[in-house]
Each structure stands twice: as structure tokens, then as C-alpha cells.
Design a protein around this nucleic acid. Structure first.
Length: 352
DNA sequence: TACACGTGGCC
DNA sequence: TGGCCAAGTGT
């Protein structure tokens, strides 16, 4: 009892004034929660405003083309979130008459809504007693109870979810859930936690045992792999050759320049004599390095990209590759990965 | 069930 | 600098 009272009391004094905290509309809460998955508030904030402006309700969201949603999502990362939100919005229109659900059992069935997000929406919008367990909660509980079971292990997840459910203030689930997360974000933060001023300091096991900086424990994942991307700049008058990425790899359904990936770093000269390059651009194409190699770090990959201008290209049939010429003035309507739009901007391919 | 999926900020 | 982390989910 004391734990949830301390959390709710602390929250009343210390909570930030965030726009999604002024509503009980499950659609608006859904927008904010998905945007905030694995994303800092400061990074997500402008996207929240943008999506609410363009798509004030779930019908508007469902009616939008996927390309347009991805364009507005550009730069936020984890693009499957936008694609899954599209599917979820259409399911809400088709199966819930356009009324966004606020029950956990309905929410959990929607694409892109997992245990955390379903609990968040259900508790914030309708005070359904479901405990949220996000990174903040894992960290707070690991420290407060001095638990060194890895938070990303199967056992750890079971343990922390069970504990969170027991601690939930069933009288004020929404308030308590927002409180624990905010507490984890501002007070029991990952680095330099503010233990000196913490209302839980007398009961915190990790603080008592001097283990605050060792908790939570997290199993290390696999090391990143390196990939070598050779991007080609092929223009025809005021048009630029672009590629829409497919399934099964990074940046699904986003647009990029024509790409040839090589198993290791290659020079432009080596590139010129490669079969695939000749097959794509003809024997007499003149290649010239324009930029790179640029290192672009993803969560599980290190990309090394170089950008190569193609002079005198002879594109064989255009049917073999899924490449299409796009008017340079229209480039802004296409969703592109950060690596690509940064290059286009720096290269002076300006579009408005 | 581990692992893949983006980007930016911090030290 | 490079590694870790940030309101997770799908497969």
C-alpha cells in the first residue's frame, strides 16, 4: 500500500505537463503510446502533434494511404509501428464501427498493440486495472526490490509482470500506472538516479546494498553485423531513379536510391567492373564517388554507405529492377530513411 | 523464443 | 568513441 501511495503522491508533485495527459480518448492515447515505444518524449512530441493534426480520428488514420503515413513517420524509426497502426486503424473501422476500443481484451488483438500498450490505453482511458510494465517499471522494481534476474530473460519477464500486477493500485490504475512510469523516467532514471531526494530511499533494497548502478541486469544481445551499401545516383532531366524497399529487411516500404549491396567494402573502380553493375547501368557507365563511405548505425546493423553518380547510364529494360524515376520536386512526398534524406539534402537535391 | 527492427542523446 | 539506453512488438 505504501508503495503505490508514495508513487501517486510523488506523481502529483512532479509530473510533466504532456499533451496526451489531457485526454481520455483511447485513439489519442494510442497515438502517443505507439509513438513513444522505444522513443524519448522529446523525439516523439513533434510526431504526436503532426499525426493528431493530419489524422484527428481513427477514420482519418484508416483512410490515409500507407505511403502518406510512412512519410509523416519519416525520421522516427521502427517503421513497422506506422504500418501496424494502419492495420489496427482499419480493423477498428471494420470491426468496432470506428469506435476505438478501451478494453484490454479488445486492444491486445490489434496489430502493434502488445501487453504494455494495451495496459496503458485500458488503464489511462478507462481505468481498467492492468499493470503497465515498460523499461521504467523494470528498472524501478529491479532496484527497489534488489532483483538481479535479467529483465529480458523469460523468467525475469514473468517475475516482473507478476510483481507489477501485485503492486498495482486497483483503486487508481491509470494514475498509478502513469506514476510508476514517470517516476522511473525522472527519479529512478537509468543514469545518475536521484536517490538523495527519493521518497522510496528508506525502503530501496538496491540503495541499501549499494547496487543501484548494477540494476537492472540485462542480458547482452548479439553483436551488430556490418553491411556495405552502394547507392547510385541516376538522373534523367529533372527526375531521379528511386527504389521502394520490400519485405524481409530494414526500412520496409521506404524509398531509397538504387542499391547494390556488396559483402565487403568496394572501391568505385571495383564497382565498375562488377557484373551486376554492368547489368544495371551498361558497360559504358561512368561511375564517380560523390559521398561516403558514411557510417549509419542501426540497432543491429552498422551500415557503410557510399553514393556513386552514374554518368551515361544505359538502363536495359527497367523491368528487371523495381526502380522508378521520380520527379525531384516530388521527392518530399516519399518516406525515406534518415541515411537517404540526409544525403539528398547534403547533396543539394532539394525538394520542398 | 531469441532476435530484428531506427534514431538520437548521453557520457 | 562506441556502447548503452528509450513509454515494445512481431515472428
Amino acid at each position: 500500500m505504501a508503495f503505490s501511495d508514495d508513487i501517486i503522491g510523488w506523481y502529483a508533485q512532479n509530473k510533466r505537463d504532456l499533451p496526451w495527459r489531457h485526454t481520455k480518448d483511447p485513439y489519442v492515447i494510442w497515438l502517443s503510446e505507439v509513438i513513444l515505444q522505444q522513443t524519448r518524449v522529446e523525439q516523439g512530441l513533434p510526431y504526436f502533434h503532426r499525426f493528431l493534426l493530419h489524422y484527428p480520428n481513427v477514420q482519418a488514420f484508416a483512410n490515409a494511404p500507407e505511403d502518406e503515413l510512412l512519410m509523416h513517420w519519416q525520421g522516427l524509426g521502427y517503421y513497422s509501428r506506422a504500418r501496424n497502426m494502419h492495420k489496427a486503424a482499419r480493423a477498428v473501422v471494420a470491426e468496432h464501427g470506428g469506435v476505438f476500443p478501451s478494453r484490454y481484451a479488445d486492444l491486445i488483438k490489434l496489430k502493434g498493440i502488445g501487453e504494455y500498450t494495451a495496459a496503458a490505453i485500458a488503464s489511462f482511458a478507462a481505468d481498467e486495472p492492468k499493470a503497465v510494465v515498460d523499461g521504467n517499471v523494470f528498472r524501478l522494481l529491479a532496484r527497489y526490490f534488489g532483483i538481479d534476474t535479467p529483465i529480458n530473460s523469460t523468467n525475469g519477464k514473468k517475475l516482473f509482470f507478476q510483481l507489477a500486477e501485485e503492486l498495482l493500485d486497483t483503486g487508481h490504475p491509470g494514475l498509478y500506472n502513469q506514476g510508476v512510469m514517470e517516476f522511473g523516467a525522472l527519479q529512478c532514471r537509468p543514469k545518475n538516479p536521484r536517490c538523495g531526494s527519493c521518497v522510496l530511499r528508506l525502503d530501496c533494497r538496491a540503495l541499501k546494498e549499494g547496487r543501484v548502478d548494477q540494476l537492472p541486469v540485462k542480458l547482452k544481445g548479439k553483436a551488430s553485423r556490418n553491411r556495405y551499401f552502394n547507392y547510385f545516383i541516376v538522373t534523367e532531366d529533372d527526375r531521379l531513379l528511386m527504389n521502394k524497399r520490400g519485405k524481409g529487411d530494414i526500412w520496409e516500404n521506404l524509398y531509397e536510391l538504387p542499391l547494390i549491396e556488396t559483402p565487403h567494402a568496394v572501391t568505385v573502380q571495383e564497382l565498375e567492373s562488377r557484373e551486376e553493375v554492368i547489368a544495371c547501368f551498361g558497360e559504358h557507365a561512368a561511375l564517380q564517388l560523390v559521398a561516403g563511405p558514411v557510417k549509419h548505425v542501426l540497432s543491429h546493423q552498422n551500415l557503410f554507405a557510399q553514393f556513386v553518380a552514374v554518368g551515361a547510364p544505359q538502363i536495359p529494360d527497367g523491368k528487371k529492377m523495381p526502380w522508378n524515376y521520380v520527379f525531384i520536386k516530388d521527392l518530399g512526398t516519399l518516406a525515406k530513411p534518415k541515411l537517404i534524406y540526409s544525403f539528398l539534402r547534403d547533396y543539394g537535391l532539394n525538394y520542398t
